[in-house]
Amino acid sequence: MDSEREPVRVVIVDDEQLVRMALRLVIDGEPDLTVVAEAADGNAAIAVVDEQRPDVVLMDVRMPGRDGLSTTRELLTRRPAPRVLMLTTFDSDDLVLGALRAGALGFVLKDTQPPRILDAVRTVADGNPVLSPAATARVIAAATGPQSAHARHSSREAARKELSTLTERERETARAIADGLGNPEIARRLRISVATVKAHTSSLFAKLAVENRVQIALLVRDAEE
C-alpha cells in the first residue's frame, strides 16, 4: 500500500471484548491501518459507522440482537458504503452465503493468524474480495448444498431475468468474473482492453445493482444452476 496514502480507517464489530481488544492491537500496530471505533452489536455498529465513515468494517457474523448479516445489509445502503469483512467461526453457513449476497467482500476465520487478517483488511480496503481456503470450501458447500426444487427454480429464474438486461459483452464479462478472473485475464480472454473490461464491470454494477464482483459471481452461478 502506498505509504503516502491516508491510513485505512477500520471499525471492529464483535460482541466479545477480548476479540475486539486483540484485533485493535494487531491493526493499530500497522502504519497504514487505524481502528477508529469499536462496537459490540449491530445497532451500535450502525451508529459508529454513520459517525466515523470508516473504509472497512470488520464484522462478526453472529452477535446477540442484530446479527452481522442484518447489519451488513443496512451498512451497504450507505453512500459511500464501507467495505465489510466478516469474522466467523463458520458455524452458520446460511449467514455466510447471505452476507456475500448482501455485499460483504470476504471472510476470515477468528483463529486466522494476524498477518493474514491484516492482508485481508488491506485487500478489502482496495475493493477486492478475499476468502480464506477454509472459508472458500464452506461457501462452496453452502452454495451447492441441498435445496428444494421450487427454491432452486425461483433463484435461477430471478438470476436469469437480471442477467437478461445485459449486452452480450457484459454477459461474457460477468461469466469471466464468475470464473475468478481479474481484469487483465478477462481482457485477454475477450480480446479487449483492460479499460473496456473496467467499463463493462462498471455497467454490471449499475445494471445488476450490486456492490462488488462476488455478488456478480453468485448471480451467474444462480442463473446456471
Rank of each mutant, 00 (worst) to 15 (best):
A104P: 01
P184Q: 07
F205P: 03
G127D: 01
D50E: 14
V194P: 14
L166T: 13
A199P: 13
V57R: 04
L95K: 09
Q147K: 13
I140K: 02
D32L: 07
D32M: 05
D2E: 04
R156H: 08
L181M: 13
V108A: 01
A39D: 00
Q113V: 07
L219G: 00
E74F: 05
L109R: 07
R189T: 03
A174Y: 09
R169S: 14
A134N: 08
E185M: 09
R66D: 05
T173P: 09
V49A: 09
L204K: 05
V10C: 11
G68W: 00
R116V: 08
V57N: 02
R191Q: 13
A102P: 13
D55W: 06
T123F: 00
M63E: 08
D179M: 09
R62I: 15
T112E: 13
T123A: 03
R101D: 15
K161M: 12
G182W: 14
A137E: 04
T71G: 13
P115H: 03
R189Q: 06
S70I: 10
R160K: 11
L95T: 02
P146L: 07
P31T: 03
K207M: 12
R53S: 11
L166W: 12
P82W: 00
D41N: 12
I192R: 12
L97M: 09
M59D: 05
V10Q: 12
R116L: 05
F107L: 01
V130A: 02
K110W: 02
R79G: 15
D67V: 09
I186E: 13
D60L: 04
M1D: 00
R24L: 06
S154T: 14
T165D: 15
V57Y: 07
R83K: 11
A176C: 11
P54M: 10
S92R: 14
L105E: 12
R221M: 02
T136W: 13
R171A: 06
T144G: 03
P146E: 07
L166S: 08
V194M: 12
R189S: 02
E30W: 01
D32V: 01
V84E: 05
R73T: 10
Q147R: 14
R101S: 14
L109C: 10
D50Q: 12
D50T: 01
